[in-house]
Design a binder for these strands. Structure first.
Ligand SMILES: [Mn+2]
Ligand SMILES: [Mn+2]
Ligand SMILES: [Mn+2]
Ligand SMILES: [Mn+2]
Lengths: 219, 219
DNA sequence: TTATAATGTTAGATTTATCTAACAAAATTG
DNA sequence: CAATTTTGTTAGATAAATCTAACATTATAA
């Protein structure tokens, strides 16, 4: 059974994997906030459990087993976040830290009950998909708001970044998942957008913000 | 901040403490299922944090600070057990193992929300008191059913043992907290009792069982 | 009251997860 | 392509939590 530390590495590896499924030691060290030698020794450990493939001086690659293990931890994380928001009244900006701990609880029934109580949700409070019990993730392809054009109407569906600061910014603008926005205009100089949505007329959103908003175009 | 291991030792120390607040190394080792040298080194560590007083060859004694720390972990454990039963539909025999893990979550709000959602319960699903936010425990003095006499009517209020096996035995006899029992007779030979309660006429309860049932006499 | 048993301690080893310093390989750049 | 930078590895150390073997102290009992 994976230790808490190993579980956190697996999750991070899963999230950092590029199109070739590769992760560099330096990236992993940066993300985990540990030194490269620490990562070097950890990937050797993870390899012994067949969770990844490691060859000297090469980026590491999660195996199928490793990907499944990671997805199941992510499942517990996201179910927890959704439970905290939907059943316990937390704000979407408060739940990540708690889920970071709860995801390591070994008690399948605990998470199954959460799932049942919520009616088997498929996304978490930040719009990210919840992997199923087999560790499969449904790929959803949303568009970044910054890719949209003036005149379009979109629905905010997910976020590319869920830091507390960003979530608090969105709270301050009363932007939440499901909000319908109409793009009034796009400023050519800095790519900032002016949008209208429930309760807000001509709200300006910087490019930095628009890049982090994932939307479904509806008109 | 106490590690998970330290938290488990503190909790066990709290529960093992006798009237003089003393705990022997051997008891602690037995309860924690580790060797005596392991306990020996751990109590030295706990002493460095002023959680207990240790002197060579003497039983250890929790300090006020140590008692409070322990009581606050027990609070998290019992709130969790109550939440699992009252809000998530678990049976009282299923919750201890999960609570044993959840009690180590560092997220005051998480437990405060549980507490609020349940309306600030004062006992857990096994009838044990939930320490308050200051770590104070209200002492309740129930009677052991085995101390009662034929003819008396009592209400099942708590248990001295909450092992899964015992809880499953109680389930099989449809005995739960709050059940009103009338003692028909006490067998002189083996101290077994014959009792009547909702749905059960003349149910025989062994001395072993009666010793583990804490009751309030109501007639 | 001495022998024996029970309890507790010390010494030394192991595993896990981390670090720094030094070195090696690979990638980038002038 | 050679110099430099970036990335990755090795070696060796540390702290936490555990173990066994050996020894010491305290308690019990003959
Ligand atoms: Mn999260
Ligand atoms: Mn985590
Ligand atoms: Mn319990
Ligand atoms: Mn525990």
């Amino acid at each position: 059974m994976a230790s808490q530390t190993e579980e956190n590495y697996l999750k991070t590896l899963f999230n950092l994997a590029n199109d070739k499924n590769e992760v560099n030691i330096s990236e992993l060290a940066a993300q985990m906030q540990v030194s490269m030698p620490t990562v070097n020794s950890m990937v050797k450990t993870l390899q012994k459990n067949d969770w990844l493939i490691y060859e000297k001086y090469k980026p590491v690659i999660l195996t199928q087993k490793g990907k499944k293990e990671a997805a199941l931890i992510i499942r517990k994380h996201r179910l927890t976040e959704m439970f905290l928001v939907n059943k316990m009244g937390f704000g979407w900006e408060e739940v990540h830290e708690i889920a970071e701990q709860v995801e390591h609880i070994h008690a399948p029934k605990f998470f199954e009950r959460m799932d049942e109580m919520m009616g088997f949700p498929t996304i978490d409070p930040h719009g990210s998909p919840i992997p199923d019990k087999q560790g499969r993730i449904q790929e959803i392809n949303y568009l970044t708001l910054s890719k949209c054009k003036a005149g379009q109407t979109v629905i905010l569906a997910a976020l590319t970044n869920s830091s507390t600061e960003f979530l608090e910014f969105l709270n301050s603008r009363e932007l939440s998942l499901g909000t319908e926005l109409t793009i009034n205009s796009v400023e050519n100089y800095d790519q900032s957008m002016v949008a209208t949505y429930v309760g807000h007329t001509s709200e300006t959103l910087s490019e930095k913000v628009c890049e982090r908003l994932l939307v479904r175009v509806i008109g």
